[in-house]
Write a protein that binds this DNA or RNA. Structure first.
Lengths: 352, 352
DNA sequence: CTGAAAGCGCTTACAG
DNA sequence: CTGAAAGCGCTTACAG
C-alpha cells in the first residue's frame, strides 16, 4: 500500500514536471487542453514512476456516476433460469456501488422479439455508459449493438455469443465443447449400440446455439468411433403436451432408444414424459440448474445436468464493464465458463 | 451512490447530535473516551439514519495497514497442489491492497510437522491481524489456533476443517459428500458386482480427512443397496515404487478388481502403475486438478477427477478476513465448496 | 470526555 | 493552455 511506503502520486508527478496536479489529472484522463510538450513530459514521468492511480481516491473525489444497462429475458412461468443472472448483477452492484456504479435492468419476453427491440431502444434513450445483454434474438441484437458502437457504448454478451460483433467481451459457455461433454456423460455407461435421441425444444427455430451444442455432441461420437444411430427431433412448442406428443411419436418409430440428450433447460418436460410413461433405464441428460430440473435429478430420471454458472456470468459481465469504464484496464475478449457437471449427489454444493 | 442523492454521513450525524465528527468517529469504532450519554445519542441517530460508512473514504484516510498471515504447505516436487491456494491469495491481495491489506505467506513442509510449528510461532511473533491456514497437522493446528484465540486473532481454515475450533470460517469441501460423489461416478457404469479398491496414499496416518471421504464413499454403496466388496489399502510411502509394490500385491490377492478410488491427489501414481502394468478397463477416480493427474485424464487412464477449487478457497479465506477486519461484517462459519467433476472433455475450462 | 484542523490521493469547477 | 482552491467522507494526532 502507498501509506508510509514510498508511493508516487499525482503530487509527485506534478512536482517533477513543474506543473500543477490539475494538469497531471488532465493528462492521466486524456482530457483536452494540454500542450503536446507538457503532455509528453508528464507521460514520461508517469511511465518512469510506474504510476498506479488510487482508485479509492479517484472514485471518492469524482461525482461522476456510471450507469450500466442489463438486458435479459424476464423470468417466465416456464423457467426461472434468468433469476440467476439477475442475482449476479445484484451481487456485483452491491460490491461496486461505493464506486459510483449503478445498474438498471431491462427485461424482454423470450416469446416476443418486439419486446427486445423496445427495451433496447429504451436503453439507448436512457443514455447509459455500458450494456450487458443476452443476445437471444440474433438479428435484433446485431442491430442494437451496432447502435451501441455508434454511441461508443461498450457492451458484453452473456449466455451466448455473436462472434462477429465488436463486443467488449463474451462471457459464457463454449457451446460446442459443452455438447461434447454431454456426449461423454451420455455414453459413459452405454451398454449397447442402441439409438440415441437428441431433443431440441425451442420456439426460436433459427437459434444456432443449439446447433453448436448438437455439433459438439455428434463430434464426440465421431472422435471416438462410435456408430450409434442418432435420432433428432425439433419441438417448437414448449408446453408439456406438445413435448409428450412428439416424444410418443418418436418412441413409436424408434423402439430401441437408450439415451436422450436435451439441448437446453427444458429437459424437465422430457423427464416428466419419461416418468409419466413409465419408461425406465433410459439415460437422460440436459441443461441448467433450475428447480424444475432438480426434482428429476433427485428422483434419478435425469442423470446429469450440465451448467455454465449463469449467475457468475452476469457478475463477471458487470465487473468487466466496471474494469473498462472505471479502471480503464483491458478486458479478456472471450471468457469461457466452466462446463459444470451436476448430479443428484453434488448439486447441493453447486454455486451458480 | 451517495453523491447527489441524500446521503447521511458522519457530518450529518455530528450535526444532529450536536457533537464533532471526531466524537462520532469514536462511537462508530467503539473507541474509548466518550460519555455513555453522547454515545447512546449518537448510536440512536446512526440507527435512525441507517448509516452505512463509506469504506473508500475510511480506508483512504486511515494509515492503518492490516496484515494477514497465510500458513500453507510448501509446493513440493511431488505435487503442485498448493500452488493454487497461493494464487488465490495473490488474486485477493491484488484486489484489496488498495484498502491497505497485505498478506505474508508462511510455508511448512508436509513431511515435517516441526516446520509447521516453527512457522506458526513465527506468525505469532510477527504480530499479524488475521490468519488463514491449512490445518494439515491436527494437533499442532489446534495448539496454534488456541494461541490465536488468546491473542484475539481471527483465523480461517481452508482445505480441511477442525470443527471444534472457534474459527472465523471453514472454507473447503464437505469431505463425506465428496466421497459419496466419487462412489456415484465410479459405479455409474459398473458392469458387474466385482471388487472395488479404495487406495489411501499418505504419510499422515492419523489424517482423518481421508477417513471422512472413505466413509462417504462407502455410504453410497449402502444407500443404494450395492454389495460390491470394497478392498482397502493404506500406503504410507508416497513414492512411485512403494505404491507400485502395494498395488501389485493387491492385484495378486484380488484378481477381479474393476474400479479404483484414490482418496487424494496422488491418484497419478496409481494411474502410472495401471499404465505400466498394462491393466485396462479399470475405472479410476481420484482427486485434484494438478498437472501430474492431467496427463492420465487425457489418455483415459483416469476417468474423473474430483476437485474443490483450491484457488477459490484461499481467495475467499482472505476475503473473509478482510470482511471481518475492515468492513466489520459477519462471515459465514462454514462455506462448503462445490464438488466439481473434471473429465478429459471439460478440464480445459475448469477454474480452480 | 470533546473538538478544530490537517490530511488521505484524487477530481472539479472556476479564474486567468 | 494552466493553476489555486475547495471538496469527496472519513481518520488522526493534538490541544484542551
Amino acid at each position: 500500500m502507498e501509506k508510509d511506503s514510498i508511493y508516487f502520486g499525482v503530487k509527485e508527478i506534478a512536482r517533477r514536471a513543474n506543473v500543477s496536479i490539475a494538469t497531471v489529472d488532465r493528462v492521466i484522463h486524456n482530457r483536452t487542453g494540454v500542450s503536446e510538450k507538457t503532455k509528453k513530459k508528464i507521460n514520461e514521468i508517469i511511465k518512469e514512476l510506474d504510476y498506479q492511480p488510487n482508485i479509492l481516491a479517484s472514485r471518492l473525489a469524482s461525482k461522476n456516476i456510471i450507469i450500466l444497462a442489463v438486458l435479459i429475458p424476464r423470468v417466465s412461468e416456464e423457467t426461472d433460469f434468468w433469476e440467476a443472472p439477475l442475482r449476479g448483477v445484484q451481487r456485483a452492484e452491491l460490491e461496486i456501488k461505493q464506486y459510483g456504479i449503478q445498474t438498471i435492468p431491462f427485461f424482454f419476453d423470450l416469446s416476443d422479439k418486439e419486446t427486445f427491440v423496445q427495451q433496447a431502444s429504451l436503453i439507448l434513450e436512457k443514455g447509459v455508459h455500458g450494456v450487458m445483454l443476452s443476445p437471444s434474438f440474433i438479428e435484433e441484437s446485431r442491430r442494437f449493438t451496432e447502435e451501441c458502437q455508434k454511441m461508443k457504448l461498450p457492451y458484453v454478451f452473456i449466455d451466448s455469443n455473436i462472434p462477429e460483433q465488436r463486443s467488449l467481451s463474451y462471457i459464457g459457455p463454449h457451446l460446442f465443447k459443452s455438447g461434447y461433454v454431454g456426449a461423454k456423460l451420455l455414453t459413459y455407461r452405454l451398454k449397447s449400440r442402441n439409438k440415441i435421441l437428441v431433443v431440441n425444444i425451442s420456439k426460436e427455430i433459427e437459434n444456432y446455439n443449439y446447433l453448436q451444442i448438437e455439433e459438439g455432441f455428434r463430434s464426440y461420437f465421431k472422435d471416438n468411433q462410435m456408430d450409434n444411430t442418432i435420432v433428432r427431433i425439433d419441438i417448437k412448442e414448449t408446453d408439456y403436451l406438445s413435448v409428450a406428443r412428439h416424444m410418443t411419436s418418436v418412441f413409436h418409430d424408434h423402439q430401441d432408444i437408450e439415451a436422450i440428450f436435451v439441448t437446453n433447460s427444458r429437459v424437465f418436460t422430457v423427464a416428466s414424459f419419461l416418468q409419466n410413461s413409465k419408461k425406465k433405464n433410459i439415460s437422460l441428460i440436459g441443461y441448467d440448474f433450475i428447480k424444475e430440473n432438480l426434482q428429476y435429478l433427485n428422483n434419478n430420471v435425469i442423470d446429469f445436468l450440465i451448467c455454465h454458472k449463469p449467475e457468475e456470468q452476469a457478475y463477471r459481465a458487470v465487473m468487466a464493464l466496471y474494469q473498462k469504464l472505471v479502471i480503464g484496464s483491458s478486458v479478456e475478449k472471450i471468457q469461457y465458463m466452466p462446463i459444470d457437471i451436476i448430479t443428484k449427489e453434488n448439486h447441493e454444493f453447486y454455486q451458480k
